[in-house]
Structures are given as C-alpha cells and as structure tokens.
C-alpha cells in the first residue's frame, strides 16, 4: 500500500465527529463537568453545531452539564448490586450527606451537597458484581457496601457525622 492509498483511507475517517467524544471527555476530566461557555467555544473552534454537541453531552451519562463536588461518588445500580441492596445503600448515602436521592433512576442523575464536597450519581454496572453492592469514590472501588459501613468510607474523604 502506497502513501497515497493510505491518505485516502485516513481522509475517510478525518471527520470532526470521530474526535468529539475524546475532546469532550478531556474537558470533563479537567473541569469536572462541561461548562456552558466551554461547549459554545468548542462548537466555534470545531465548526460543529452546538445542537450536535448538546445532543452528545446529554446522551452519554458520563458527561455532566452541572458543576460537581470535590468528591464523586458513584453507586452501582446494576442487577447484582440491586439484588444485594444497592437501593438501601443509596438512600443511606443520601441521608448521611443530607441530599435527596429519590429520583435516582435516570443515568443523568447527579446530586451535589450544599457544601460542594460530594456529588452522588449512579451507574448501571461496574463489572465488579462479585463484590456487590459496589460504589466508587473518585475512582476507588468499595465492595460489600452497606448502610452501616458507609460512614467509614465517607470519613476517608473528610466527611464527619455532624456535618449532615
């Protein structure tokens, strides 16, 4: 295959769409969420319609349009975790942090505490079903979570009982 033929293949894949998710996820990584003005700026820089970017950002549960807290807690609500009582873990978490977790059924759900310390969201499966129910805090996985052992996990991230 000569250089020309290779260029032809590359050209077919040289569409802005192919790199959108990568760019968006790096923005999310650096900012913690996708700020409104950044999305507008990105649309101008890439020449991609804002409606297209907004569709992507609202489609994937990975992206957040709302600012998130210092620590990100994700509670797994997959089948195994659900069976092992993830619902109870989530509502206990809400109680400890003083936030409403009632509407946690949508993947786009994320609630942040008033002091901006914690954001709680859910995921459908971590692939760690053997340790169900699982939750992750800032990417660290915690297995066999129970309403009882939550305070110990939260304490690692600076949470105190009286704060809630």
């Amino acid at each position: 295959m000569d250089s020309h033929a290779l260029d032809a293949i590359i050209a077919r894949y040289d569409v802005p769409d192919g790199r959108l998710l990568g760019i968006l996820s790096e923005v999310q990584e650096q900012e913690g969420y996708i700020p409104h003005d950044v999305l507008v700026m990105l649309s101008e820089k890439l020449g991609v319609r804002l409606s297209r970017l907004y569709s992507l950002v609202t489609f994937y549960s990975f992206f957040s349009l709302q600012p998130v807290g210092e620590h990100m807690i994700t509670v797994c609500m997959g089948t195994a975790c659900h069976v092992k009582g993830a619902e109870m873990v989530l509502s206990a978490l809400g109680k400890h942090l003083g936030i409403e977790t009632g509407m946690a059924q949508d993947g786009k759900f994320a609630v942040t505490t008033e002091d901006n310390k914690f954001t709680v969201t859910i995921a459908r499966c971590f692939g760690a079903c053997s340790m169900a129910p699982v939750l992750s805090v800032d990417g660290n996985l915690y297995g066999y979570a129970t309403p009882e052992n939550l305070p110990a996990i939260l304490a690692e991230f600076g949470w105190r009982e009286h704060e809630s």
Partner: peptide, 17 residues
Amino acid sequence: GAIGFINRGPYTEVNTP
C-alpha cells in the same frame, strides 16, 4: 442545525441546546 435530540431513552426530546 438549530435543534437536536436531547437526552435519551424515555427522556428524549427535540429542542434547542
């Protein structure tokens, strides 16, 4: 490209960004 799909599944709607 003024409008697009927003959200997904049962929450999908069409509107402006």
